[in-house]
Design a binder for these strands. Structure first.
Lengths: 344, 344
DNA sequence: ACAAAGAAGTTAAACGTTTTTATTTTGATA
DNA sequence: TATCAAAATAAAAACGTTTAACTTCTTTGT
């Protein structure tokens, strides 16, 4: 009992395989009645399109490559990136399409570059979704040069226009800083991602602007850049809290680093709300379980991820990249007053 | 400038495509010298095997389906399952093979069942990796009935022998309980995953046995089953801590629920180490940043995940499932004394 | 009534491989 | 040197689909 093909249907209906093929894709070249007959036969024999034939014939792969940069096995630090949810969101957005998500796990930027180069050159996918964008991202130039459909999770600064989805980091930081300033903070630390990531730069710029607006001086010792692990959050607090004029507020770029910051507080004997406060950008919805719960800007990860999925679909259908750009504003969740009792 | 095919090489070398094909896969039917010529030509023209042709011809897909059960968008609770690391571990294990990881995100058990049924029936992959096994798992029966290669992350209890990778939950719980008993605990809570998951059952059984060994009575109110979110950990502590005879130790099945348990402590004014302690099973390496750090059984997730990858490869090559079973014993990391000061 | 145009369907080729079968070449033996 | 088996290579078919080019039939306009 072989799996039925269009040939099976052709025999079944007495039509040619060409007509069957056209009928199944509702070509206008075939009469509605004929089409009905074909569809009925297909149904009857339990026909399912064999993608391998299609792929060979058309050259399309029906794969969307998701490039996931995960640290190697030795660095087992949790970075709090809910890639899983990101991937499932993308996957669900593609659910009703013939496309599948194909995973490319890479260890670092260079590997992602090489991988993308290969996917583009050998056409191993029809579209690419890539995250961890840099200010001037060579991967994007490669894809653009080859006219290859892609969407980034994260903006860029010096690249030509492309499709992207991102949180509105600028607004978020500006408002974060302004809010803390309103509550009396004068020394605000920025726990930022790796310096070459585009959103690190955006956040830093917004931070400086917001300080400017508030009439506060920018102090480079209050800014730290690194991979957003709990260790990094912890180290930052340990270091900054022993400054002569330590920060009274820490803005952490994610929840993993915020958790680490708490660990630093604990180590130093700092009390949240008395000595300093922690704010964060949140996509796991987990900060509410911190002790105490902290104020965050929350962006449920399924929003950007589903957008990424639908954007790549539209991009592969030829929509211009300019139409496929979204900055999503996370919403403020105030879980703490975030004032500190003035130092005596 | 077309992409070179074996035809290109055939013209280049004056050989037939059949010989080229055989030469490239080092068939003994072709002379070493001829093979050398072909390989050189392939190199020269930059030939890369086109999988679509292979797939159509051989019926193999060169895809390994990873079934990932992620909760739907509405349930945005973090479950602490590092699927991302799991997936990347698998992906890396397949790196040097022609296989790719194809992602199937499903919302629940029923969907995973349907998805697996489809993959098996339509041969959309050559192998399947599935997690969240149940005591008697119908998905496994489907794959076994079709003689379809698969590996599970998690054991089963009532199914026929199959390839699996899992943490040694039984040992882990037994030792956990014994250790806590040694430290004077008499009321030990078990914060367990969903009751129908196989490892929930294993853990519960081990827990009961360990209590037995220690001469302690089993009290069902000290056991809770649910999705391992922080919310669940929190609720469990809130509920159990107001029992007439509350637990002095909580064994949490993962770090997400442990984090929630901390949140419950905070809410109730419980102090870790004075009123009760929290232990956990850990695969994110994040418990060290809790305040205070807690004792865990730690299993770096890349170990099981790389094993999953290599097992599925070997399984697809026909190795018998009995040879592909691994229980990994997580290692104890004592970060806290875990005694509690006796209630006065 | 008849050519032209349009509609609906068929034929055949092609995508890049693998593999079965057929053919040629090689080298050893008589 | 002819013969034959073995070794090496070539020819051809097949996997399932799409699509360009062609054929047949129907409709339309003059």
């Amino acid at each position: 009992m072989q799996r039925p093909t269009i040939k099976t249907i052709a025999q079944e209906t007495g039509l040619s395989i060409a007509t069957v093929s056209k009928a199944l894709k509702s070509s206008p070249q075939v009469r509605p009645e004929t089409r009905a007959i074909v569809v009925a036969a297909a149904e009857r024999v339990g026909y399912e399109l064999n993608m391998h034939g299609v792929q060979l014939r058309t050259g399309k792969t029906y794969q969307v490559a998701a490039i996931m940069t995960a640290p190697g096995p030795k660095q087992q630090e949790w970075e709090g990136v809910e890639y899983a949810q990101l991937l499932s969101g993308i996957s669900w957005a593609l659910e009703d399409s013939p496309y599948r998500v194909s995973l490319y796990a890479v260890r670092n930027f260079e590997e992602s570059l090489a991988t993308i180069r290969q996917i583009v050159a050998l056409k191993k996918a029809d579209g690419i979704i890539v995250s961890g964008t840099r200010a001037d991202d060579p991967r994007i130039r490669i894809m653009q040069a080859a006219d290859f459909p892609f969407v980034t999770y994260g903006t860029t600064i010096h690249n030509d226009a492309h499709a992207y989805v991102d949180a509105d980091n600028e607004q978020m930081i500006r408002r974060s800083v302004a809010r803390l300033v309103e509550r009396g903070h004068r020394r605000i630390a920025l726990i930022n991602p790796l310096a070459d990531l585009s959103y690190a730069i955006t956040r830093l710029a917004a931070y400086r602007q917001a300080l400017d607006v508030a009439g506060l001086a920018f102090d480079p010792v209050l800014v730290a850049h690194d991979r957003l692990t709990p260790a990094f959050g912890r180290e930052s607090v340990l270091a900054m809290s022993r400054l002569p004029d330590p920060p009274t507020a820490y803005i952490c770029a994610n929840e993993a680093s915020a958790l680490g910051a708490f660990s630093g507080f604990h180590e130093r004997g700092l009390v949240h709300g008395r000595d300093a406060v922690i704010n964060a950008t949140d996509d796991l919805n987990v900060s509410q379980y911190f002790a105490p719960p902290i104020t965050t800007y929350f962006l449920p990860i399924h929003e950007p991820s589903e957008l990424l999925g639908s954007y790549i679909l539209r991009r592969m259908e030829g929509e211009p990249p300019e139409a496929l750009q979204a900055l999503i504003m996370p919403r403020l969740i105030e879980r703490s007053d975030d004032r500190v009792t003035p130092k005596r």
